[in-house]
Design a protein around this nucleic acid. Structure first.
Lengths: 230, 230
DNA sequence: ACAATAGTGTCTGTGAGACAGTATCGA
DNA sequence: TCGATACTGTCTCACAGACACTATTGT
């Protein structure tokens, strides 16, 4: 069957001008009871000295998830982390240099796992307060502020109907800690008794408790086996 | 500042091998009380004669949404339609010819708006029964079956917490019609009285009613102004 | 009158939210 | 003992689900 090998030719002939594809990373965490995100300071034009999401080009032999994983490892030093695809941004003039389509990835982690490193084209990698970024009129590189808003919104929504909040905590935690995470993500305070009733089916006690505080200690919990955390 | 113009050079030098980017379209509708999707039969290799999602390459000066809109117009003849980005598929060997990253778009429409046309590389464009496709072991081109499953799932989920079901109906409809749409999308039957209570705040009566049926006529409604349908 | 579908009134159980209380630590 | 935080019991109200009923057409 000649057709089976002929098809390659017809496609080679059509020389589409191709966009570049990158993966941009939104690595969220919680520090000092505040939602934070990993941003880099750009060392090159365009948007030199401005804050931007860390990102990597997608290699030709690399999946999107693979590129995201690689980027998270390179920029935040984390190999074992929750992440999911967020949205793909394809406006024509997002980047003044050339047409770049960016697949954004949302990832959540307890702050203890983060080990910030410094990329080639960036002068620093730091955690920034998310609400502060979004409420101030701070300008970010490219369309990255809009992307962060979108990611922030996704976190809030998924907090309501999934268990992603657990991704911000390490394996063991107390219920007051868990409640605090929910309150930060939802942006409102919750009633203790009701909150505990709600999360009880998802957690299981350990035998241990917190100690050293000048008040009643709290039980330490972990996520119950059968709880789907995403 | 020389830097401002220098930056272009440094990027020109790095010759990344770029993937191609396409937009794949999931156009869903309801016909004869069944969920249907627009598929094309491929006329070329690879996957010749198999069913596939309609799709278009993203032009270098075209947004992703723009490409989706163009594709929907070309394949289904619709210009005014609800659509949203679904997911971006980036496995390395999705397409045996070359690396293609596909941004999928979900769109919903009343069947009356569809006018199927025939593309260049496809022999036919038709509506196919979604549940039948997904429950049978029918094979589709590329990873398109997985994409359809993902889209089907998204519709089910969003039916529960948004008003997308309305997108399948024309401007005026009866409550029994609306209930039928919900039942099809959710895959289960609903209780009449409860359903009506639930949707009442989102609709408003017209003065007209159905006629000609050998049973009690039903009031004709439309979507209430302040109802956010997405 | 009857078949067939449209539409309504009401009961019940569940669960979210709010309140008010008790428990246990360090100092 | 007291300050501070952890934890619990119970009331209420809204709402989803189920049932049983009435209403209106064409034949």
């Amino acid at each position: 069957m000649s057709g089976e090998k002929e098809y390659l030719k017809s496609y080679d002939k059509e020389m589409y001008e191709k966009p570049s594809v990158t993966v941009d990373l939104l690595v969220f965490t919680i520090v000092d009871d505040r939602l934070k995100i990993v941003l880099v300071k750009r060392e090159e034009y365009p948007f030199k000295d401005m804050l931007a999401l860390p990102g990597v080009f997608v290699n030709i032999d690399e999946t999107l998830d693979g590129a995201a994983k690689r980027g998270i490892k390179e920029e935040a030093g984390i190999t074992d982390i929750y992440f999911e695809q967020l949205y793909t941004w394809g406006d024509v003039n997002r980047d003044p240099r050339m047409r770049i389509i960016s697949v954004s990835y949302l990832s959540l982690t307890p702050s203890e796992k983060i080990q910030l490193s410094i990329g080639q084209r960036t002068s620093s990698v730091e955690l920034y307060d998310v609400e502060e970024l979004l409420t101030s009129d701070a300008k970010l590189a490219f369309d990255h502020k809009k992307i962060i808003e979108y990611g922030r919104e996704r976190i809030k929504n998924k907090t309501e109907y999934t268990q992603i909040a657990f991704e911000f905590l390490e394996e063991e935690f107390t219920l007051p800690q868990l409640q605090k995470v929910y309150e930060i993500l939802l942006g409102k305070s919750l009633h203790k008794a009701n909150f505990r009733r709600k999360v009880m089916p998802m957690v299981e006690e350990t035998e241990r408790m917190t100690m050293g505080d000048a008040h009643r200690p709290s039980k330490i919990y972990r996520v119950k086996e059968n709880t789907i955390v995403v």
